[in-house]
Design a protein around this nucleic acid. Structure first.
Length: 522
RNA sequence: GGCCCCAUCGUCUAGCCUGGCCUAGGACACCGGAUUUUCAGUCCGAUAACGGGGGUUCAAAUCCCCCUGGGGUCACCA
């Protein structure tokens, strides 16, 4: 049996697409499951200048998620180079071979003309086929036109004189057939000698001995061309597996960065955008506005766990059985198979992602949670280096408990980090719990007095003290606790009331109550 | 429009290949109840799907055909 080798071939676009990441994950999973090799190859035939800058975020996403590559940038192997821009010779050599064998031809048709032909075919509702006028040009004609400066491209000659169908035996979709007589001859090389995707891809996959080409469904229509190229070049075809693409939440349309404006309005997506709008400005990210939920970086920067994202991504189009939802990367790799990949597109569900995330966050130790949220606190200017190790932070995180889902969630609890006089009151909550109830302010005043005479320190102490107060005043706890919460934390909801008081301490509580009493709503 | 793919709860999916155990299972979301000072959580519970039509068969979510619907792709992009 041939060694299992899979690959993911991103082009350096400056960000990592979440759907692309899912494709990469499946490739990685398949390789790991079979003890094979996962190759990262860079499709940079476009020759972008800022290659380095455009590639870095992509590699960073792989590193963050722990999807290591066995060959690729920075990891030399036997099949390099792993940048297409460094593999020109391979392509031109293969191309010459095809030319020599009459399996390709130089086409001097002007691009404008090809375009016109295609458009008129479409207008007449006809399948478009390129003209083959230049197929039988003599060597002299070709040479003279070239020296004349005429531009040309090289087209692969699709074998149309056959009634054989091109059959793809796809590992997830089964048998798929295409009719070669309906297919235009694809351009494989530009006049300047640079290869086109379908060509470079075949050469690279073949030379790198990729055994399984696992990619998203949108490549299915490229597959017959590639299959013919494999055949023409005398390469053995790999196993193709076309996995469903990742769809936008609440629909079947492919998730696309071009539709961001639409997503912003989508109810399913709203939470993710709202979170970004809240968190990123606070932590002063330079590229705040450029991070969106289509990019993997978004999830990293906003404080998701690799385990959470990976778990969610793995369940898009794949399942282990009829029960298991929570899986570590190890478990997934151990159980992954192409047979359990489904055929229909899978909508990305932010809610489900969040529930996976919540689970994996819950698995973290107190120290790990603390370490994860410290960068957010620091960048938001809420703590300095000395406060970093304080056991108060530990106490706060413990009090937040299950409310702590993303690392950036710590920023929602800024009441524990700001000075008393800088505490901001949520206007709605303030109005509802302090302005509106008639007795609120006088009760708060009395409570501050009561607190003054107590030596409460622990959560239990505060519980006791507040209940004593309630008894003395002959009121229900509900009559004071809401106002107290707003006064002390500025918010209508949060951690347990007495936890909050214990964290802040008597002095702060009293101070905040007094400030609240004096506070006027604008 | 040509070519190709897809079709089970709102969503992600199990079941389909190898018909009967499916009165269609799980998860997320939603709704209700309990607990709690609030929110979250937790625990209980509820609602919720085989797109339609024909076949084949004793029996169809499962096999076949048609329709409908959705989507992908049609570059000298990747």
């Amino acid at each position: 049996m041939k060694p299992i080798r899979t690959r993911f071939a991103p082009s350096p676009t400056g960000y990592m697409h979440i759907g692309g990441m899912r494709t990469a994950l499946f490739n990685w999973l398949f390789a790991k499951h079979h003890g094979g090799v996962f190759v990262l190859r860079i499709d940079d035939t476009d020759r972008a200048r800022n290659m380095d800058q455009a590639l870095r975020p992509i590699l960073q996403s792989f590193r963050w998620l722990g999807l290591d590559w066995d060959e690729g940038p920075g990891v030399e192997g036997d099949f390099g180079p792993y940048f297409q821009s460094q593999r020109d010779e391979l392509y031109s050599h293969a191309c010459e071979e095809l030319l020599k064998q009459g399996k390709a031809f130089r086409d001097f048709t002007l691009p404008e003309q090809s375009k016109a032909e295609r458009e008129s075919a479409e207008k007449e509702k006809r399948n478009y086929l390129n003209n083959r006028n230049d197929q039988h040009l003599s060597e002299e004609d070709i040479q003279s036109r070239i020296s004349n400066g005429d531009k040309y491209v090289i087209r692969f000659l699709v074998p149309r004189d056959t009634d054989e169908k091109i059959v793809i035996d796809d590992a997830v979709r089964g048998r798929v057939e295409f009719d070669p007589t309906q297919m235009p001859d694809p351009v494989i090389m530009r006049g300047d000698g640079t290869p086109l995707y379908n060509f470079a891809c075949v050469i690279d996959d073949a030379k790198m001995q990729i055994s399984h080409v696992i990619r998203a469904e949108e490549h299915l229509s490229n597959t017959p061309i590639q299959a013919m190229l494999y055949d023409a070049l005398g390469y053995e075809r790999p196993v193709f597996a076309h996995i469903p693409y990742v769809a936008a939440p609440g629909g079947k349309e492919k998730l696309s960065k071009r539709k961001l404006d639409k997503y912003r309005k989508s109810p399913q997506f709203k939470k993710l955008f709202d979170a970004a709008d809240f968190v990123f400005p606070l932590i002063n990210l330079e590229n705040t506005g450029e991070l969106d939920p289509v990019m993997v970086e978004y999830y990293e920067k906003i404080g998701y766990l690799p385990a959470g994202l990976l778990n969610a991504l793995s369940r898009l189009g794949w399942s282990l059985d009829d029960q298991t939802e929570i899986m570590s990367l190890d478990t997934i790799a151990k159980n992954f198979s192409l047979e359990r990949v489904i055929k229909s597109a899978a909508g990305f569900d932010p809610d489900k992602l969040l529930s996976f995330q919540a689970h994996w966050m819950g698995e973290l130790s107190a120290e790990q949670k603390q370490a994860g949220c410290i960068p957010y606190l620091k960048q938001a200017g809420l703590i300095n280096d000395e406060q970093e190790q304080s056991n108060q932070l530990e106490q706060i995180i413990a009090a937040i408990g299950e409310r702590f889902v993303l690392f950036s969630d710590i920023l929602k609890f800024n009441e524990f980090f700001v000075a008393d006089e800088e505490l901001e009151f949520d206007p709605k909550a303030f109005k509802k719990r302090i302005v509106k109830p008639e007795q609120a302010k006088s009760l708060l005043d009395a409570l501050a007095e009561h607190l003054q005479n107590s030596q409460a320190e622990s959560t239990e102490d505060f519980d006791q003290v507040v209940h004593d107060f309630v008894e003395k005043q002959e009121i229900q706890i509900g009559q004071i606790i809401h106002a107290l919460r707003v006064a002390v934390t500025g918010k209508g909801a949060g951690v347990g009331m007495f936890d909050a008081m214990a964290i802040l301490g008597t002095e702060s509580c009293i101070k905040r109550i007094r400030i609240a009493i004096a506070h006027n709503l604008e």
